[in-house]
């Protein structure tokens, strides 16, 4: 039992890594990773939703009819994320402003639907929780790493948190002036993700 739990968690992070292995949820990934902080914020918010949606769907799995599961998943996830968005706007406005448009974006994160369909629907609650947690951790890690790479090489700073922390000029001020802007733009996202996928899967094979 315990080993199963641990196994599920680790699988969520590595073997079933949403971005690098399963290649789902790529849209928000490319859009959001222009800075480490953005990546981290989106990752944490998404993790929260992964866990909760997995929990709900797993606990309702016995009564959700097979051929209606997709619409039902979508209703649950969309209502859910919307409620979280309202709650953030009302009770944690500064955080809501920082996360901004990323919160509603979670609804279209294929990862949630992917895990719901691929795991939570067929597994007990405690394992689904672990899967959601693992998927979230894996997702967040990748987002953070991608964000770091794109921010450092693309803008010359790291951990810029708008309004709070100007970031560390890791490669010096002169690089910051004329960094590789391409990395902040869409092509940069594709390049970075491709590299990471290649490296990660190479490492996994070994």
């Amino acid at each position: 039992m315990e080993r199963e739990i641990k196994r599920t968690l680790i699988d969520g992070i590595i073997k079933n890594n949403l971005i690098l292995v399963l290649a789902i949820g790529l849209c928000p990934t490319l859009a959001v990773t222009t800075s480490a902080y953005n990546g981290l914020g989106m990752g944490l918010a998404a993790t929260f939703v992964f866990i909760l949606s997995n929990l709900i769907i797993s606990s309702l799995r016995k009564i959700i009819p097979g051929n209606l599961r997709i619409p039902i998943f979508i209703i649950i996830i969309a209502s859910f994320v919307t409620m979280i968005d309202y709650a953030l706007k009302a009770y944690l406005p500064p955080l809501s402003t920082q996360l901004g448009v990323f919160v509603p974006l979670i609804v279209v994160n294929c990862g949630i639907l992917g895990r719901a369909e691929g795991f939570a629907y067929k597994n007990p609650v405690h394992l689904s929780f672990m899967d959601g947690l693992g998927a979230g951790i894996g997702f967040t890690l990748v987002l953070f790493i991608m964000g770091t790479i794109r921010e450092i090489l693309g803008q010359g700073i790291w951990l810029n948190i708008p309004g709070i922390f100007p970031g560390i000029k890791v490669l010096g001020s002169s690089f910051a002036e004329s960094s590789i802007i391409l990395l902040i733009l869409p092509p940069g996202g594709f390049l970075t993700i491709a590299l990471l996928m290649g490296l990660f899967n190479y490492w996994r094979k070994k």
């Binding site: 959001v32 953005n38 448009v101 921010e151 803008q155 902040i184 733009l185």
Partner: peptide, 8 residues
């Protein structure tokens, strides 16, 4: 809702 890191 401009491009983060650029338009923003």
């Amino acid at each position: 809702s401009e491009t983060p890191g650029l338009g923003m």
